[in-house]
Write a protein that binds this DNA or RNA. Structure first.
Lengths: 172, 172
DNA sequence: TCAATAAAAGATATAAAGGTCTTAATATCT
DNA sequence: AGATATTAAGACCTTTATATCTTTTATTGA
């Protein structure tokens, strides 16, 4: 490490010409869009259970997310019929009671990130399958299936209720 | 869908001004850099077991990856002492036999992507923990731990051997 | 010691994700 | 009908990940 380099954070390093050298990619289960989408949906569900709509402003305040970006994500969720949007005064976002009961976490994730996280190959190989497996294929199949099952079994109602009772949190 | 829009693929859509509208982010367990890194390391291990070095050219041919990008990743792996590099004629990359025995998949992943995938919160919350859990915290803890355990227990030797015996594959 | 070979380092380019801003559309209330 | 509130749509900007190209350094063998 010479004095010509500049450490920006523990992850980001610039050289003498301010060029980005290397930082470990913050790999995550879901994209940030998806994370915001899940958090927003949970808040909307909670409000809906109380017979109230959630406005964009209230949502972004409550889940601590960038407003304009969150608006885009909510548009997608509305198109995918995960949430319903209502324009005009007293408008906002809502989810029908019966949908809160039946909707699974997988539907939210699918609307934003698709299903690659539990369908694709762990090493990114296109034609990886049980007949022509990649070296980590069988190792990943189990974990992937667990994730898939969990997302498909977890109900929106359950998550919204744990928020309502103060057992879980959407911020920080 | 108006006639002013252009469908590029099932995921990518451009509007009349050729602006990108929305495509589900290809979320994956590991970054592409990490995927190439794992595949490259496995190939190098296989060659090393046969007493041979693997050149960059041979690696990129064998794992079907972009050459210059793979070179960068191999530099990182060399710095992290996952592989050893040798310059000059007959040079290339190699892994010591004892390291093939002891090295775990987690060491390769850590060198490229870090450990966020099995440490971070599923909803991206900074201060999510068992005391102040996010709504999906407990659901994810199990899956995350399984992933962590699998990466820490899987030995390079095991994976390289399954390649050697033609049970698994690195291409396609 | 010189030519050839192979990786390291550095600079730059391109694509995708993340995020903002402005204008349009729609609903409500007076 | 007009003023206001609220989301939708579109254009644009910024940062990060992915990828390439050029120059430098180390090693080998004639």
């Amino acid at each position: 490490m010479t004095n010509q380099m500049k450490i920006i954070s523990d992850k980001i390093v610039l050289n003498k010409n301010s060029h980005y050298i290397w930082a470990k990619s913050k790999s995550r289960m879901f994209s940030k869009a998806c994370e915001y989408g899940i958090r927003a949906t949970l808040y909307i569900a909670q409000k809906s259970l109380n017979g109230q709509r959630a406005s964009l402003k209230a949502i972004t305040h409550e889940i601590d997310s960038p407003e304009a970006f969150t608006a885009k994500i909510l548009q997608q969720l509305a198109k995918a019929q995960v949430v319903r949007s209502v324009k005009g005064p007293h408008g906002g976002f809502e989810i029908a009671r019966e949908d809160i009961d039946s909707m699974r976490l997988s539907e939210i994730v699918n609307a934003i990130d698709g299903d690659n996280i539990y369908k694709g190959c762990g090493l990114g190989l296109k034609a990886c399958n049980a007949q022509k497996p990649c070296p980590v294929h069988h190792k990943f199949t189990a974990i992937r299936n667990d994730l898939k099952t969990m997302l498909q079994e977890t109900r929106l109602l359950e998550l919204a209720t744990s928020l309502e009772t103060g057992l879980t949190f959407l911020k920080r």
